[in-house]
Amino acid sequence: MTTSRLLTLACCLLVAVMSRGAAGATYFVTVAGLGGEPDYEQRFTAAAKDLDKAFRASGASAHVTTLMGKDATRARLTEVLGTVAREAKGDDDFVLVLIGHGTFSGGSGGGEDSGDGYKFNLVGPDVTAAELAGMCDKITSRRQLVVDTTSASGGAVMALRRAGRAVVAATKSGTEKNATVFARYWVEAMQDPAADVDKSDSISAMEAFQYADKKTAAFYESQKRLATEHAVFEDTGRGEPVRTASGNEGNLLSSFTVLRIGASQKATNDPARQQLLLKKEELEQKVDVLKYGKAAMDPDEYKKQLRETLVQLAEVQGELDK
């Protein structure tokens, strides 16, 4: 890796780190759509309730609305998203999670690009991907995350994608039409500390995606069934949906904190510790730069620098914990 590339990377990382530190509100809207059968109805509602609980527990800056049962109508969804559009500010984040069944007709009048082909099943009239995109477009926010966990949700990605919005779908296309299990594991990611793989006391959208994706694959493997869903994401606003981070795809998901857990939120809000936090972020950034430059470094030198930086980081964290 060249020096200039490293510098660029360092700058990008700095942006990412700084954005992690920002303290806007997060608007969460969760919808458990029409189950059709008691079993699905119960499953979707339970998942929505679990998410509701997890989001509410994440702190005062979380604005949580959950629609389920008879309340999960197109009219109510329009109303709720309209409220968010009125209330949310430019430094806020917005998270929309759709749980339930989706349908897709990729024929005339509704291709994956148009967004008319995908419909999220609600009580009463359904809502298309294009309509959902339109409602979300009206919301002023720093960043948006749309997590569509329904069957055929891959068919909605192209209609939903937009700069500043990360879109996650449970299926790779509109043609994966079987009921999905991805939602179960997305919810679990919000509850299981193991999802916080970088131990940052927060769950990023990428961590949640990877957790749910891996658990979904394990589910099919354990059942000795052929997997009928393959989750994807798109977060550049102009790319094709992908299964793993590559190029610019994945940057927004990685920096998008869905949920804060543990002590990190407290420290973020304490002005007395801002200096230490800045120092900590600086060291974290240094670790990131080292990691990205690892392949080009002498292994012993890399280890030495990594050890020194990590020791300093541990000491700063010790101060923060006091």
Binding site: D198, V287, K291, R307, L313, A314, Q317
Partner: peptide, 19 residues
């Protein structure tokens, strides 16, 4: 422990073991 912290630099128990 360095491998643990390389993956998760803020992992407090690992930080303590490193120290």
């Amino acid at each position: 422990v360095l491998l643990a912290l390389e993956a998760a630099p803020g992992f407090r128990p690992a930080q303590k073991l490193l120290l």
